[in-house]
């Protein structure tokens, strides 16, 4: 195993009187896939929001690629290579599929006023480069035919795919995926999983995935982080966490 790319240390967040995340500590090694599991209300989404900066933590640290990022805003964390998706898809309904993709291009010189007006060669070549990458991703996600469609007109599954594609467009080092397979048809789920596998093994991309389908998450992950009532209950290989009685109890308790 390599060095951790991400470390959460004593993360804590409460809303009103409710402690949503309670002293969560875990690591994710570079180039691995980590699965974040737990019954509903375990604090998985809140943890995602704390890692990506959408919530400010009441206490604790987030260390990404050796740098403390807990004081940084969401966009600053994203610029450093940590990209997240949302559980409920946040497609930009009034923008076309292609525009949704291109938006994610990083370091685009055309996003300054002067760059936009001058439209220099570097702006054009960056845009062209982004278009090519978007074409690749959209073809893989089977959304290429829909590139000129408004995102608001896509089906639920297609929106999930678009959100994943948009996140990949940003070329992240670490990708936080919140239920990426929900509503996606089974054929495509398999292809998505193998793509995630490829990205991990070939490009060394790191993933943290929240997913409810136990078979899927157990098969794809190198490491499982099990949460319950805001706490990290169990960390280990899929086999270890599967046989951890504490986790089993949490799920049984959660379903009552």
């Amino acid at each position: 195993m390599t060095d951790p790319i991400l470390r959460a240390e004593g993360l804590r967040k409460s809303f009103g009187g409710l402690l949503a995340v309670d002293d969560a500590t875990f690591e994710v090694e570079e180039g691995t896939i980590a699965g974040l599991i737990g019954p509903n209300g375990a604090g998985k989404s809140t943890t995602f929001n704390l890692l990506s900066g959408f919530y400010g933590a009441d206490a604790g640290e987030v260390i990404f690629e050796g740098e403390h990022v807990e004081g940084l805003s969401p966009d600053e964390r994203a610029q450093r290579g940590m990209i997240r998706t949302f559980q409920i898809t946040r497609e930009l309904t009034g923008m076309k599929v292609m525009a949704n993709m291109l938006l994610a291009a990083q370091d685009h010189p055309g996003e300054t006023v002067v760059g936009a007006l001058a439209n220099t060669g570097s702006v054009e070549s960056r845009e062209e480069q982004a278009r090519e990458r978007a074409e690749d991703l959209l073809k893989f996600l089977e959304l290429w035919e829909l590139r000129e469609e408004y995102a608001g007109n896509l089906s639920g599954g297609q929106r999930k795919l678009l959100e994943l594609g948009r996140a990949l467009m940003a070329d992240p080092d670490l990708l936080l995926l919140d239920e990426p397979m929900a509503g996606v048809n089974p054929d495509l789920t398999d292809r998505l999983l193998s793509r995630i596998d490829d990205l991990q093994s070939e490009e060394g991309m790191t993933f943290v995935i929240v997913e409810h389908d136990m078979d899927v998450i157990m098969s794809v992950s190198d490491k499982i982080i099990g949460m319950h009532n805001g706490q990290v209950l169990s960390v280990g290989t899929p086999e270890e966490v599967k046989s951890d009685e504490k986790m089993l109890e949490a799920y049984l308790g959660g379903s009552v």
């Binding site: 990506s52 959408f54 805003s73 969401p74 966009d75 600053e76 994203a78 610029q79 990209i83 997240r84 998706t85 949302f86 946040r90 930009l92 309904t93 009034g94 923008m95 525009a99 291109l102 938006l103 994610a104 990083q106 996003e111 948009r166 996140a167 940003a170």
Partner: peptide, 18 residues
């Protein structure tokens, strides 16, 4: 494009580093 994204849902461009 970024302005339009802000209009549609500000958190999305924020999550993408804008």
């Amino acid at each position: 494009r970024v302005l339009h994204a802000v209009r549609e849902d500000e958190e999305v461009p924020l999550a993408l580093g804008k």
